[in-house]
Design a protein around this nucleic acid. Structure first.
Lengths: 173, 173
DNA sequence: TATTGTTATACTCTATAACTATA
DNA sequence: TATAGTTATAGAGTATAACAATA
């Protein structure tokens, strides 16, 4: 008798554990994911809104400035696109805006005239530092009330999850 | 150039990302936040991409359908806008698309003719269930390898954080 | 007057792809 | 041939505000 011939109801009659455990686990993962997403979205929305309201800027613009601020010698646009996980064309657009506002400059390279290096202007650096200070303050309002063990636990568990996520997104690239 | 075309080794070789950027100078809350955001963004991007590729849909559309699926008696649009954290006008737009695709219907109310109640059509319900099954499977790939204690800890800590975030975002509403 | 939903508008981000100019 | 960056296009989400119908 082949497995295919066993009626489905008999095949799974006394194995409800496997099935229900799987289902339960997937439900648990879904709940965990939705909670994670809720937290991130709530905080992110608030930060986006404040960046817009108080500094007339956006999260991607802020992120690009943050990358440059951490790299005072400058950074090429392709490198930025890799770090920010968006395409070259998008970096060009954001860069255009920030350049127009005087926050950064394109420095063309003598040795490779295809590429240019982006650097914050003094004004951009100053502006970033003001925004970053506010940013850290906003974050504190969200995270400070969390108990210390919770913070540590979160940092560890999210670290593991992040690793898994990286692996997972590579496998089907 | 597509993101998918970026070689993995280049993408993650020694290119510090959002989180590691500030690791040295800013401990604590900023680090925790960037790690949380990284996890959410990595997974969210992957899911957006798969929803688009495999089901020709988007995350907001999927989420609206999920809300309705959890509420078979139907839901008013203002309630949806509250739950999905977007404005009324946006719900109208997403609803228009889904209605055009036959996924849901607007049912006008006799007792309050200003409002209508949204309900999934049988086709919409069927389609949602197919997508949700795939969605859960995708999630499992990310979360299943996480240890059980980590999952529990995450769920608890994120629960606390979510509460704090809600309080925080309401205070200046 | 307040609420429900619609409409209109403008902006940002995103993906895709064709293009240039270099290398 | 491959790479760096640009340009063009199209689509989606969002915020804002003015609006109509109804409560």
């Amino acid at each position: 008798m082949k497995i295919q011939d066993i009626p489905t109801d008999k095949l799974f009659a006394d194995t409800p554990d496997l099935e229900s455990r799987l289902a339960a686990q997937e439900q648990g993962e879904m709940r965990l994911w939705l909670r994670l997403l809720s937290c991130a979205t709530l905080i992110e929305n608030e930060i986006r809104s404040r960046l817009r309201r108080e500094f007339k800027t956006t999260l991607p613009r802020f992120e690009l400035m943050a990358q440059l601020h951490e790299c005072p010698e400058g950074m090429r646009m392709t490198e930025l696109s890799r770090r920010m996980l968006v395409t070259n064309g998008n970096i060009t657009g954001i860069t255009d805006q920030l350049e127009k506002e005087g926050m950064l400059e394109r420095h063309r390279q003598a040795h490779d005239r295809r590429s240019s290096v982006l650097r914050l202007t003094p004004q951009g650096k100053k502006q970033y530092q003001i925004m970053a200070a506010a940013y850290r303050e906003w974050l504190s309002a969200f995270f400070a009330p969390l108990s210390a063990p919770n913070k540590e636990g979160l940092l560890d568990s999210l670290g593991e999850l992040k690793l898994l996520a990286h692996i997972q997104t590579h496998n089907n690239a």
